[in-house]
Simulated scan of single mutants.
Amino acid sequence: MTDRLKLVTWNINSVRLRMPIVEQLIDEIAPDVICLQETKCPDANFPENAFRKAGYHHMAIHGQKGYHGVATLSKLPLTNVEKRDFCMIGDSRHVAADVPFNGSSLRLHNFYVPAGGDEPDRTINPKFGHKLDFMAEMEAWLCGIETEKPAILVGDLNVAPFEHDVWSHKQLLKVVSHTPVETELLERVRAAGDWLDAMRHFTPHEEKLYTWWSYRAKDWEKADKGRRLDHVWVSRPLVPHVKGTSVLRAARGWEKPSDHAPVIAEFSV
């Protein structure tokens, strides 16, 4: 049956280190498709057997040693796999594949956008310049033919675009991930393809919505200084089929957690 789809996107911050909580997620949520970011391992060392044992026999993996990396794991067949090299520097930050849905298929993009370093000034911080260039390439590409059919874009986009996507709008305006140059550029990326921000579609803009809490906080839950860095976007042909999104906040408190929580999106005909 391809009339329902449950998808999870999660920056796992090392898939091999955190495989036990990935298995916990699978036990609790039973997603059809899992999109991971920051897997931090080359393809040859990816824990494929653990995923196969859990029922995820179809994999689109784009990894590298120690850094970055994205992987899409599916109970459903994945076809037309594409790994785009943004900015032509060889980083593993994108993988796309077609997933069966509604008697046909949808295009699923899995992204890990560069974090951008600490200083929001490309003249003194090349990492920030790289982040802006990466998103500019997204803007030029993720429109037109890429969004004329059913498509989903998920991942750690490393930008918290709106006022209530961060714990303090005023205090973070000069902090990388919430600076105006980043938030405005991400909105241009979204608008270029007329993508729907599915998380904000279901959660009003005046409500706080976070997916990331720093490891630096002694008590992350009490401090609650979060940011919404992880996103689910849906192309217009798929909008009637998106039924809900949610953040599995509890996962941030699991044993040896990622600093990101999983985001769940559900689709049905």
Rank of each mutant, 00 (worst) to 15 (best):
residue 103 G to M: 10
residue 199 M to K: 09
residue 148 E to K: 15
residue 84 R to K: 15
residue 189 V to E: 00
residue 123 T to V: 01
residue 6 K to V: 11
residue 96 A to S: 15
residue 133 D to V: 13
residue 195 W to G: 00
residue 245 T to W: 11
residue 219 D to S: 10
residue 231 H to T: 00
residue 126 P to R: 09
residue 252 R to S: 08
residue 170 K to I: 02
residue 233 W to A: 03
residue 61 I to T: 01
residue 183 T to G: 02
residue 115 A to V: 10
residue 45 N to F: 01
residue 67 Y to T: 09
residue 77 P to F: 04
residue 127 K to D: 08
residue 258 S to F: 01
residue 158 N to E: 14
residue 195 W to K: 01
residue 185 L to T: 10
residue 174 K to H: 11
residue 177 S to G: 06
residue 238 L to K: 07
residue 17 L to Y: 12
residue 215 Y to F: 14
residue 183 T to M: 04
residue 243 K to R: 14
residue 85 D to E: 12
residue 224 D to G: 00
residue 269 V to A: 08
residue 88 M to R: 15
residue 95 V to W: 06
residue 216 R to F: 02
residue 124 I to A: 02
residue 1 M to Y: 12
residue 162 F to I: 08
residue 201 H to D: 07
residue 141 W to V: 13
residue 266 E to P: 00
residue 141 W to G: 04
residue 128 F to T: 02
residue 17 L to S: 14
residue 158 N to W: 14
residue 176 V to N: 06
residue 24 Q to A: 11
residue 96 A to F: 13
residue 238 L to H: 09
residue 253 G to D: 04
residue 5 L to F: 07
residue 105 S to F: 15
residue 198 A to P: 06
residue 251 A to Y: 00
residue 188 R to I: 06
residue 187 E to N: 05
residue 66 G to V: 04
residue 59 M to C: 04
residue 29 I to G: 00
residue 115 A to Q: 12
residue 40 K to Y: 04
residue 80 N to I: 09
residue 214 S to L: 05
residue 79 T to Q: 11
residue 269 V to S: 10
residue 233 W to I: 07
residue 123 T to S: 10
residue 229 L to Q: 00
residue 112 Y to A: 06
residue 76 L to T: 08
residue 175 V to L: 09
residue 58 H to N: 03
residue 216 R to G: 02
residue 80 N to K: 13
residue 213 W to I: 04
residue 254 W to F: 09
residue 222 K to A: 11
residue 107 R to A: 06
residue 257 P to Y: 03
residue 104 S to C: 07
residue 248 L to H: 04
residue 164 H to N: 15
residue 137 E to Q: 14
residue 230 D to E: 09
residue 132 L to V: 14
residue 17 L to D: 11
residue 30 A to P: 01
residue 177 S to A: 12
residue 93 R to G: 09
residue 83 K to S: 11
residue 208 K to H: 13
